Computed example of a mutant assay.
Amino acid sequence: MPRSKALPAELDPSARQLVGQLRRLKDHSELTMRQLAAKTGYSTKSWERYLGGTVLPPLEAVEALARITGADPIPLCALHEIAADTRDRRRARAVAQPESTAQPREGQRQQEGEGEEEGEEEQPAKSAGPLPEVPATPVALTAPPATGPAPGRAPHIALTACVVALTVALLAALLLVLRLDEDGTPAAVAAPPRTTAASPPPSYTCHITRVDGGWSAGVNNGRNTEISYGATGADVAEAQCLLRREGISPGGIDGMFGPLTLRALKTFQQRAGLDVDGMLGPRSWKALRG
């Protein structure tokens, strides 16, 4: 069995422990990635990311792996909840950090703009010369001409608006990257576990009878096709029924040549004095049918 790749160094301890448990269940059950995808409804590429530690698997995928391997799902679900909570807190901090750094900069630029504006208003007073003498005769007072906004205010307002727009664009890009980075949905070619009820896998029923002096389960019309580990279909279901008749449990009668069926076949071959190769060939079929 190929050795698993090392997990990313930045993976938090709870997620690292969860992925380690999932890897052990998969290795112990001797499931290939393709068989794991077929039994859980999640694609092979998704399971490679889940077991590689690059993406936190959905809770439904964790429950599906526990179900097909016969493991207790409660500890795995608890680890998943802790890992998901840690991931959400990290994302919240990553989103809040750009906002907190943008506000002081905007305030600083506004204060600088106000300071320059005040300096421009005070400048004429500093450069004014001595006051003229008041004439003895009354002089008609006229209102001062209206003045527009300070010449330095408009550029600072435009600069502040540019800073705010840039901050909003950065936040939107960050949220988009985080959303694209997360792959928590099953592949389009496989239905999620909660919707598999609409298209259930084929079911097989054992009807053990004697046909032409040999045993038959009535599933594959008496064929003796050579099959091996990883095969699926009616031939596998026929062999599972006959193994159960011999008192050896192959697991469920599901038509999938998995680890339990392989173990049951090897037990039968050893008991019957055959080559224990885990392949159901002509001699093993003949012994099964009696």
Rank of each mutant, 00 (worst) to 15 (best):
S284V: 04
A66V: 01
P250D: 04
E99Q: 12
R244L: 15
L288V: 06
L59F: 01
K45V: 03
R210N: 14
A64G: 04
A94M: 08
K5P: 13
V95R: 08
A264M: 05
M256W: 10
S4D: 03
E226W: 01
V236H: 07
R194F: 12
T267Q: 14
R271G: 02
Q35D: 12
T160R: 15
E118H: 09
P13F: 03
R289G: 08
Y50C: 01
P73R: 01
G129I: 01
P13T: 10
I248A: 04
L170P: 00
G213M: 00
L159K: 11
A140C: 07
V168K: 11
C162G: 14
C241S: 11
T267A: 15
S216A: 15
C77R: 12
P73V: 02
D181F: 08
G273A: 05
N224H: 02
R34D: 09
G107E: 12
R49V: 01
L260W: 08
P193H: 05
R153C: 14
R153T: 15
R90V: 09
Q240R: 04
Y42F: 12
I157V: 14
D181E: 13
R210I: 04
Q108R: 05
A165M: 09
T86N: 15
A146R: 12
I74W: 06
V163T: 08
P98V: 05
P202W: 14
H207R: 15
A172H: 02
V95I: 07
R263N: 15
A78N: 12
A234P: 07
V55L: 03
N221Q: 08
L171R: 11
N220D: 15
P250K: 03
L65V: 01
G41E: 01
D254I: 09
L76K: 04
E99T: 11
Y42V: 01
A158I: 06
